[in-house]
């Protein structure tokens, strides 16, 4: 059995690694939740890369129907073809197009399938896939073919908890909640992105970053990806470490809402002391 050990470009906690391996061993989908920007989607990429497997992504939108993931029967094309006699329209097979889930099932070897942001779709969407994910097979009535996975794909499902997922669906998953990384883990993550970063710059950036994150009233807290962008901007702009100690340059890369920027800047005037009581007084 394949064991996922992680990859160089993705820092992973021991707990998550164990859970990935549990889900692989049990053949159950792994449901990953967590704050935006904690690397839910990247996890699937990393698994595919680490195990050297083919990778399929099924991006879910609010209009996505469960059946689209299995197959689409292109009736309009067939109707059009029938009018001009271009193709043999009695051969329905050529109008059946497998969806991402279908492709993953039909693959010759074991693959990694990412179902991204499953909560975007309708409430009933996950329920419609229960049987397919359990059996890893489905039936196409138009052609009378059953597509069955020879090797159960490794399924990773991400959710931003915009909607509650139905219980029967949850029962079949292995669940992992990615907590926001602690400062130590964050250091590792940043170093993966910038291997040659100065220790001093890194420490100063993280100090500021976690300081900003502690504001209770932020509408959108900065996440890992924003931190990486910010450090990129600082390095590109050649900002000296001294300057970061006394102010926060390029605040716009960390905070995306005007109210948030105002809030931080307002209390930023007194922030050298890192006085937390000051911050909460400003806020309430």
């Amino acid at each position: 059995m394949d064991k996922f050990k992680g990859t160089d470009d993705y820092v992973i906690s021991q707990e998550l690694r164990d859970n990935v391996n549990v889900s692989i061993a049990l053949g159950r989908p792994l449901l990953v939740k967590g704050e935006p920007g904690t690397g839910k989607t990247l996890l699937a990429h990393s698994i595919a890369k680490g195990l050297g497997k083919k990778f399929f992504i099924w991006n879910i939108k609010s209009t996505t129907k469960a059946r689209e993931g299995l197959y689409v029967y292109d009736t309009v094309q067939r109707l059009n073809d029938a009018r001009f006699g271009d193709n043999d329209v009695s051969d329905i097979k050529q109008y059946i197009k497998l969806g991402k889930l279908g492709e993953a099932f039909a693959a010759e070897e074991q693959v990694v399938l990412l179902i991204d942001e499953v909560d975007k779709a309708e409430l009933e969407f996950p329920n419609d896939l229960l049987n397919e994910l359990d059996e890893m097979s489905f039936y196409i009535p138009e052609t009378g073919v059953t597509v069955k996975a020879q090797h159960r794909p490794i399924v990773i499902i991400t959710s931003n908890s915009e909607k509650e997922l139905p219980d029967p669906f949850l029962r079949r998953c292995v669940f992992h909640y990615i907590a926001f990384p602690e400062q130590e883990l964050m250091e590792e993550i940043v170093i993966v992105h910038f291997p040659d970063i100065e220790k001093k710059l890194l420490r100063e950036c993280l100090k500021k970053f976690y300081w900003i994150r502690e504001f209770d009233m932020l509408r959108k807290k900065p996440s890992t990806s924003e931190l990486v962008d910010w450090i990129q901007a600082l390095r590109a702009g050649g900002v000296p470490v001294k300057k970061i100690e006394s102010e926060i340059p390029f605040l716009g890369t960390l905070l995306k809402k005007k109210e948030d920027i105002d809030l931080v800047q307002k209390s930023g005037k007194t922030h050298y002391s890192f006085n937390s009581s000051m911050r909460s007084r400003d806020v309430y």
């Binding site: 164990d18 859970n19 549990v22 949850l170 292995v174 669940f175 992992h176 909640y177």
Partner: peptide, 12 residues
């Protein structure tokens, strides 16, 4: 502890 959590608990 971790495995049981991931299998038994589906909401943080």
């Amino acid at each position: 502890y971790n495995i049981a959590k991931s299998i038994l608990v589906k909401n943080e």
